[in-house]
């Protein structure tokens, strides 16, 4: 039994796993109505603790949990749910950062997450600050295992995490694992030999709307779950009005649709990679040459 795919959504998305609900947000016996890839989706937590989901009359055969979220696949899964190797280190503390609905393509949200140039403005006083606005060259290339990887990103941050109130230059590594899954690694403020992991997991509800879920994993130093969550929601709350005011709402993949500069290198790579994968949902594909 598979879910009908009348929109012929590309297999790279249809046959993949997507986050659809935060486990902590589910209540016994209550339905959570949401959507995935243009289809309606209802997630229910049964009294016995089992979770099921349906899209209209169709029960979802592929449902699982990971990182504090319920994941669903509408088609035939060809691979496992995304996995972040660092999150497996046994002493790490996992924290979910909640879920936020956004009236924009999830691909725009991924691009915003990768974006270095806005940190000093949209997140002024937290993740960046004038006059430290210049973006030094960084490296972007393919990621082993698929996707893209940006390394050597150095950003001056006045308050890089809730545990840290003094500014310094922070090293960032970004990885895009799947079209709608992106993760950031940055040096832990207490133990700078280890990396904090912050993943943004986008649920593509429609082409022009998404739910942004976030998952974090920290080395065991002074992690206050509540303040981490609050910080994450504060930061994403600063991005949301930007995302909802980008025109067009879908991400244009044509390199000429929007002007890019060197600082946008990760965005340019991301768009090119999406084109190569044949991602159309949430995107404006390149016009045929």
């Amino acid at each position: 039994m598979s879910i009908p795919n009348p929109g012929r959504i590309e297999p790279v998305l249809w046959d993949d796993w997507h986050p659809v609900a935060e486990l902590a947000a589910l209540r016994h016996g209550r339905r959570l109505d949401t959507g995935l890839l243009g289809r309606p989706l209802t997630v229910t937590l049964r009294a016995d603790g089992a979770i099921d989901a349906c899209s209209g009359p169709h029960a979802l055969p592929h449902l699982d949990t990971r990182y504090g979220f319920v994941w669903a696949c509408l088609g035939a899964p060809v691979r496992d749910i995304v996995k972040f190797a660092a999150a497996d280190e046994p002493d790490r503390i996992p924290v979910t950062g909640g879920s936020m609905a956004v009236a924009a393509s999830g691909l725009r949200a991924v691009e915003n997450f990768l974006d270095l140039g806005h940190l000093g403005y949209v997140h002024q006083g937290y993740l960046g600050e004038e006059p430290h606005t210049d973006i030094k060259p960084y490296t972007v290339g393919p990621r082993e295992g698929g996707g893209i990887r940006a390394t050597g990103c150095r950003v001056y941050q006045p308050r890089p995490s809730p545990a840290d109130t003094s500014g310094y230059e922070v090293d960032y590594i970004y990885e895009v694992h799947r079209p709608y899954i992106v993760v950031l690694y940055k040096a832990n403020p207490v133990d700078r030999t280890r990396m904090d992991l912050i993943a943004l997991l986008l649920q593509p509800v429609s082409e022009e709307s998404c739910v942004a879920h976030s998952f974090m994993s920290y080395p065991p130093h002074d992690v206050n779950e509540k303040s981490v969550r609050g910080f994450q929601q504060l930061i994403f709350g600063q991005d949301r009005p930007i995302l909802e005011n980008q025109l067009p709402k879908r991400l244009p993949l044509d390199a000429k649709a929007e002007i890019s500069v060197r600082a946008d290198s990760s965005s340019a790579h991301y768009r090119r990679w999406l084109s190569q994968l044949g991602v159309r949902f949430g995107a404006i594909p390149q016009a045929p040459a």
């Binding site: 691009e111 974006d115 806005h118 949209v122 930007i242 005011n245 067009p248 244009p252 890019s260």
Partner: peptide, 22 residues
Amino acid sequence: HRGVRLTLGSCEGEELRCRYHA
């Protein structure tokens, strides 16, 4: 640059500054 509405931006005298990347 990235399509953000300029009405989110601010007027700085003889220039308009975009809200996203300034």
